Amino acid sequence: MNRSVICSLLLLIFACARPVPEATGSYNTIYIFADQPVRERVENVLASVYDKTIRTPQEEKVFTLSWANLDSLGRLSTAKNLIFLAELSGGGKTSLWVVSSLDTVARRRVAQGRDWIFVKHDVYARGQIAIYLIAPTSTELASNILINAKMLYNLVDSSINERVKKYLYSPGFGERERVDIEKKLAKQWGFTLRVPGFYSLEKFDTNFVWIRALKPERWVFVYFETTDDKSLNTKYWLEKRNYVGAQYYEGDIILDSTLTLEESTIDNERALKFSGLWFNPESYLGGPFVSYLFYKTEQKRKYIVDCALFAPIVRKEPYLRHLNIIAQTFTTKTEHH
Results as ranks from 00 to 15, higher is better:
residue 34 A to F: 05
residue 164 V to W: 08
residue 34 A to L: 06
residue 16 C to D: 15
residue 232 L to T: 06
residue 199 Y to F: 14
residue 287 G to I: 01
residue 224 F to R: 03
residue 216 P to K: 03
residue 306 D to K: 05
residue 181 I to W: 03
residue 244 V to I: 14
residue 23 A to H: 00
residue 144 N to W: 08
residue 288 P to A: 14
residue 15 A to T: 11
residue 107 R to A: 09
residue 260 T to S: 15
residue 131 I to T: 00
residue 264 S to N: 12
residue 233 N to W: 06
residue 300 K to G: 01
residue 54 I to M: 06
residue 65 L to D: 10
residue 232 L to A: 08
residue 250 E to V: 05
residue 279 F to H: 01
residue 96 L to A: 15
residue 120 K to E: 07
residue 77 S to R: 00
residue 189 W to V: 00
residue 21 P to R: 11
residue 84 F to C: 10
residue 227 T to K: 02
residue 193 L to I: 03
residue 314 V to S: 13
residue 275 S to H: 05
residue 134 I to V: 04
residue 185 L to W: 01
residue 1 M to E: 09
residue 252 D to I: 03
residue 312 P to D: 12
residue 12 L to F: 12
residue 198 F to G: 06
residue 77 S to I: 02
residue 36 Q to H: 07
residue 226 T to H: 06
residue 296 K to M: 12
residue 201 L to E: 14
residue 103 D to Y: 11
residue 307 C to M: 11
residue 167 Y to L: 05
residue 203 K to P: 08
residue 193 L to C: 01
residue 77 S to L: 02
residue 237 W to A: 12
residue 130 A to I: 03
residue 231 S to A: 10
residue 198 F to R: 14
residue 2 N to P: 08
residue 215 K to I: 14
residue 134 I to Q: 04
residue 69 N to V: 01
residue 297 T to W: 14
residue 270 R to W: 11
residue 34 A to D: 03
residue 336 H to I: 11
residue 80 K to T: 05
residue 212 R to P: 03
residue 16 C to I: 10
residue 122 D to Q: 07
residue 138 S to F: 05
residue 78 T to R: 07
residue 98 V to Y: 00
residue 5 V to R: 13
residue 24 T to H: 10
residue 42 V to N: 12
residue 75 R to K: 14
residue 284 Y to V: 01
residue 146 L to Q: 04
residue 60 E to Q: 02
residue 294 F to W: 11
residue 188 Q to S: 14
residue 92 G to K: 09
residue 332 T to Y: 07
